[in-house]
Amino acid sequence: WKVTVKGVEYTFDNPEEAKKFAEELAKKKGGQIHYKDGEFQVH
């Protein structure tokens, strides 16, 4: 499971962890999460 933040990729074994990480980042940066092709992208 991948989380991509401004072109930087983070990989997680667990989808729950990936989702949590993406949500935290989106909150911090005031961005939005897009889920696409099996990965979370924070913009």
Rank of each mutant, 00 (worst) to 15 (best):
E24V: 08
K6A: 14
V5W: 15
D13M: 07
E16L: 12
E16F: 12
T11E: 08
K19L: 14
Q41D: 05
H43T: 14
G38I: 03
H43N: 10
K2H: 05
F12N: 00
K2L: 08
E9S: 14
K36A: 12
D13P: 09
W1P: 01
Q41P: 04
K2Q: 04
K2Y: 05
L25T: 07
D13Y: 07
K28F: 11
T4R: 09
F21M: 03
W1M: 03
G7W: 04
I33Y: 06
V5Y: 15
G7H: 04
K19R: 14
P15H: 15
T11K: 13
E9G: 05
V3L: 02
T4K: 08
E39D: 06
F21N: 00
K29W: 15
Q32K: 11
F40Y: 11
K27S: 12
K6I: 09
K29E: 15
E39A: 08
K2W: 06
T4M: 08
K20S: 10
Y10M: 02
V5L: 11
A22R: 03
G30V: 04
E39F: 05
V42F: 04
F12T: 00
F12L: 01
Q41I: 14
D37I: 02
A18C: 05
H34V: 14
E16S: 10
K36E: 09
G31T: 06
D37R: 02
F12I: 00
H43W: 11
E17N: 07
G7I: 04
K29H: 15
Q41C: 14
D13Q: 09
K36P: 04
G38N: 11
G31E: 06
G7P: 01
F12D: 00
K29G: 14
G38P: 05
F21L: 02
A22G: 02
V42G: 03
H43L: 14
E39C: 09
V5F: 15
K2R: 13
E39K: 07
A22N: 01
F40C: 09
F12R: 00
N14S: 11
P15W: 15
D13E: 08
K2T: 07
A26F: 04
L25H: 06
K29S: 15
P15A: 13
Y35E: 07
G7N: 07
P15Y: 15
D37W: 02
E16G: 09
K19E: 07
N14C: 11
A26W: 06
H34Q: 10
V5G: 05
A26Q: 06
T4D: 01
K19C: 15
F12A: 00
V5P: 00
A26V: 15
E39G: 06
D37E: 08
T4I: 13
H34Y: 14
G31Y: 13
W1D: 01
F12P: 00
K19N: 04
G7Q: 04
Y35S: 04
P15K: 15
E23Y: 12
H34T: 14
K27G: 10
F21W: 07
Y35H: 05
A22T: 03
Y10L: 02
E23D: 07
K2M: 06
Q41T: 12
G31P: 04
Q32I: 13
E16T: 11
E23K: 08
A22V: 05
V3S: 00
K20I: 10
K6R: 11
K28D: 12
V8N: 08
H43S: 11
Q32P: 04
K28W: 11
Y35F: 11
G7Y: 03
K28M: 12
K28I: 13
Q32W: 15
A22M: 05
A22E: 02
V8P: 00
K20H: 10
A18E: 00
H34E: 11
E23I: 12
K2E: 01
Q32L: 10
V42S: 03
K19G: 05
I33H: 02
N14W: 04
H34K: 10
K28N: 11
K6W: 13
A18I: 01
G31K: 02
H34C: 14
H43G: 07
K2S: 06
G7R: 02
A26H: 03
G30K: 07
F12E: 00
Y35D: 04
F12H: 00
K27Y: 12
T11L: 14
I33E: 04
P15E: 14
Q41M: 11
E24M: 12
T4H: 05
F40Q: 03
E23H: 08
E17D: 12
F40R: 01
N14E: 05
E9M: 12
K29C: 15
H34D: 08
E39H: 11
V42W: 07
K29A: 14
T4S: 09
N14Y: 06
F40N: 02
V3A: 01
V5S: 12
V42Q: 03
V5H: 15
A18M: 04
N14T: 12
T11P: 06
F21K: 02
E16I: 12
E24Y: 14
A22W: 02
D37N: 08
E17C: 10
N14L: 06
Y35R: 02
Y10P: 00
E17H: 07
Y10R: 01
E17W: 04
V42L: 07
K36R: 09
Y10V: 02
L25N: 04
A26S: 06
K20C: 14
K2D: 01
A18D: 00
V8L: 11
H34M: 11
E23C: 15
W1K: 01
E24Q: 10
G38H: 14
H34I: 15
Q41E: 10
W1T: 05
T4P: 00
Y10S: 00
H34W: 12
T11D: 06
P15R: 15
G30M: 05
D13V: 07
Q41H: 13
W1E: 01
E39S: 07
T4Q: 04
D13K: 09
H43I: 15
K36D: 06
H43R: 10
E16W: 14
G31Q: 05
Q32E: 10
K2I: 09
V8Y: 12
K28S: 12
L25P: 01
F40M: 05
V8K: 12
T4G: 01
G7S: 04
F12W: 01
K27C: 14
F40H: 03
I33W: 08
H34P: 02
T4W: 09
